[in-house]
Amino acid sequence: MRKSLMRITLRQLQVFRAVCESRSYSRAAEQMALTQPAVSLQIRQLEELIGQPLFEYVGKKLYLTEAAEALLRASGDIFDRLESLDMQLSDLQGSLQGQLDLCVESSAKYFIPHLFAAFRRRYPDVSLNLTVVNHAQAVRRLSLSRDDLLIMSQVPQDMALEFMPFLNNPIVAVASLEHPLCDEGELHLQDLTAYPLLVREKGSGTRRACEEYCHQQRAHFPQTLEIGSLDAQREAVAAGLGLALLPRHAVHLELRHGLLRELPVAELPLYRSWCVVHVRGKRLSPVAQAFFGFIREERAQISALATRFSGTARLPEAGIPT
């Protein structure tokens, strides 16, 4: 190993990572509570130790060199190991401490905070960094191994992953209270196709699952409106813009308080399993291991939590996702 690399300090790496994240010396200085000349000095000293430039300007934009990309990966490994060490030392002292970096698909964002709250009652010194994305973004984050764990449905089959199904995600048809179909009895998916269907953006796991299922059931919707988030989709249904196929957990309050109506469609609910996922071979931190174990061991508690969001009877146990 080059002796110069042994002189790199953690502070220099922190400043370097701030510049990489913000793509700006001035924003990195603000983030690190430093002056811009101090940031420039730290980067210049780091470049002298590395022996190569780390950044270059093209026009007014700051870009990472290949050396910077390599250093960014190495620094990530270093800080991950230090975080893991901190957790292990806390564990040796009899208390689990540290942060769980958890990424969830948007359809799970309503339930997962309650699940983490149950976990935190057992481990009160654990903190949470929660990132909410759609399915396509979750897959990209998996390929980069950016998070400790992910909560997703439709686990990719072409990636080396470890996953565990733990809860069903029922997708139901919902309408405004004034919708004509609310006066009908039992319906079929085909009955819904005469009305506009509100769908999520491309890349949404719920949209993909519903499109595949409707295709299987030969239910084709000629009128669709694309709505870019679950919350906006829910409000658009309430406004009378159309029907939607939504996770029941996302609309449980509206259903419970009579703001939306779940339509009695014979082919629904459509069940997909939420799974906790990580890249196979990934070294999990003690906090991530504890959260994974909590999900595996506390199925009864998770099922009891889920009944608050179901609006119906107790949900069946989750199976292998399809």
Rank of each mutant, 00 (worst) to 15 (best):
286 P>E: 07
295 I>P: 00
300 A>M: 03
265 V>C: 02
277 V>W: 08
216 Q>R: 14
289 Q>E: 13
226 E>S: 08
215 H>P: 00
300 A>W: 01
301 Q>L: 13
208 R>C: 03
210 C>E: 08
232 A>M: 15
237 V>G: 10
283 R>F: 04
219 A>K: 06
210 C>W: 15
227 I>S: 00
278 H>L: 03
271 Y>R: 07
272 R>T: 12
217 Q>Y: 03
241 L>Y: 15
218 R>G: 03
210 C>K: 08
222 P>F: 05
243 L>W: 13
214 C>P: 01
264 P>M: 06
233 Q>E: 13
199 V>P: 02
273 S>W: 03
268 L>D: 02
248 R>I: 10
235 E>N: 10
256 R>P: 02
273 S>P: 09
259 L>A: 13
215 H>I: 02
286 P>L: 08
289 Q>N: 06
242 G>E: 03
214 C>V: 03
294 F>G: 04
246 L>K: 13
207 R>T: 10
267 E>K: 01
226 E>Q: 07
250 A>Y: 11
216 Q>L: 10
207 R>Q: 11
214 C>E: 07
279 V>P: 01
247 P>L: 14
218 R>A: 15
221 F>Y: 09
215 H>V: 02
211 E>I: 01
200 R>C: 10
299 R>D: 10
257 H>C: 00
262 E>T: 05
281 G>K: 06
294 F>R: 08
270 L>K: 01
222 P>N: 03
268 L>Q: 06
203 G>W: 01
277 V>Q: 04
264 P>S: 07
258 G>L: 09
278 H>Y: 14
237 V>W: 06
282 K>A: 06
205 G>T: 09
256 R>L: 14
225 L>V: 13
300 A>P: 00
291 F>Y: 13
278 H>M: 00
263 L>R: 05
290 A>F: 03
220 H>V: 12
247 P>M: 15
233 Q>I: 01
291 F>M: 04
242 G>Y: 07
262 E>F: 09
200 R>N: 12
202 K>W: 03
264 P>Y: 11
260 L>A: 07
235 E>A: 15
216 Q>C: 01
280 R>S: 09
257 H>M: 02
241 L>F: 14
279 V>N: 01
295 I>Q: 05
298 E>I: 01
253 L>Y: 12
279 V>G: 01
227 I>E: 01
283 R>D: 10
217 Q>K: 12
244 A>W: 12
282 K>E: 07
292 F>C: 04
205 G>D: 08
235 E>P: 00
212 E>K: 14
284 L>C: 07
200 R>G: 15
272 R>H: 11
231 D>A: 14
239 A>H: 03
203 G>I: 06
